[in-house]
Write a protein that binds this DNA or RNA. Structure first.
Lengths: 194, 194
DNA sequence: TTTAACCTAACGACCGTTAGTTTGTTTTTG
DNA sequence: CAAAAACAAACTAACGGTCGTTAGGTTAAA
């Protein structure tokens, strides 16, 4: 019975709350209930542990978001996008994976900056592209302001990041306040006047 | 001729790029051109150095933003707010103080979390309150959507954080792309249809 | 009998910090 | 006005602790 996944879970939590440099292998090992050098039975280095955790977490988050979009495919786009923002906001409070991912996208370990961004940026680009494509579908494009699908897509990810920012340095409560203020503004801004 | 301000400047730069835990007193001293213990002639501890830098930086940034708002008091509010967003975005690239402040508002040193947030949160609250007040002035309130001044103010800070987020994990270029997409959406969302 | 997962012991490097000293400039005093 | 005292800002040396990491041994399952 290997503790590799336990190490990853504990490391995830500590990386999320203390950062890469702030979370030491000693504290990780303590929390797992093993000795520090035992970590090296599973990972070549601290950086290797981090990258392993990061890859796993990014993969899962991709799937979750894709799944959420698929489940809401029948809904009007603004309902589905609102739900997604709400979900991400709630996840930041309840889910260490989301906190980890967000923190490390903003401020990755200096030595791993390029490697991390090389994984994250394609994901962001793809997400924005697929969102643009979805908003460009006939049933949505007709309801959009002439500004177009791409403008609405970029504005959306900006709004999401703005709400998540408040979830980071504020709280779920204040982030929810932001969401309920910005969402009507966003909708009026992207929907065509009828 | 004391090197205290030099120490603060160098620490600011390293804290901004490597984080509090990632920036060591040894490296700071090296960059200043003094020995590590000499720092203790000016600061009681690393935390003390950090707090000193943080206070100074927050004070300056407050003044800058207040000044910017005052200078643009004659303009239509959406022009002044666009300019402010642009300014903050540019500052993130060119000004280490802005990078430091933003990073430490998101993820302050764990042990100083409450102290830092105790300084930052009042500032954010005041900024939002004054923005709401400004948008509520007769010459602006009449041009606003019935949603109201407070909604427009909260939506604005959300947009700013969204643009700055892209400045952090992307670049000035991609952040500018966001700004030019989100701004028309924001304006349509907060202005009354004529 | 090999292999995987842990262990203990210990490494050198660096961490933040303290003690005590030197040096050069102010400030006070005879 | 010159000597003395005080002070500020640097220094060297070194502290105990923690960092990530390696070597090598034990144990139990395959």
């Amino acid at each position: 019975m290997t503790r590799k996944p336990v190490i990853e879970d504990v490391a995830l939590g500590l990386f999320a709350s203390e950062g890469f440099e702030g979370a030491s292998l000693g504290r990780i090992a303590d929390a797992v209930g093993i000795r520090k050098p035992s970590i090296y039975a599973h990972f070549r280095s601290k950086e290797d542990l981090f990258l392993s955790v990061f890859r796993r977490t990014l993969r899962r988050k991709k799937r979750q978001i894709f799944q959420f979009a698929q489940d809401g495919a029948g809904l009007p786009f603004e309902e589905m996008l609102f739900g997604l923002t709400e979900r991400l906001m709630d996840d930041y409070e309840s889910d260490a994976e989301t906190r980890f991912l967000l923190r490390m996208c903003y401020f990755p370990p200096t030595s791993l900056h390029d490697k991390v961004m090389g994984m994250v940026n394609p994901f962001f680009r793809q997400a924005e592209r697929e969102l643009t494509r979805m908003l460009g579908q006939p049933e949505n494009a007709g309801r959009l302001h002439p500004g177009g699908a791409q403008e609405a897509a970029i504005a959306y990810v900006t709004v999401v990041d703005g709400v998540l920012a408040e979830a980071i340095y504020g709280s779920r409560r204040t982030a929810a306040r932001r969401l309920s203020a910005v969402w009507p503004v966003y909708c009026r801004g992207v929907l065509a006047k009828h």
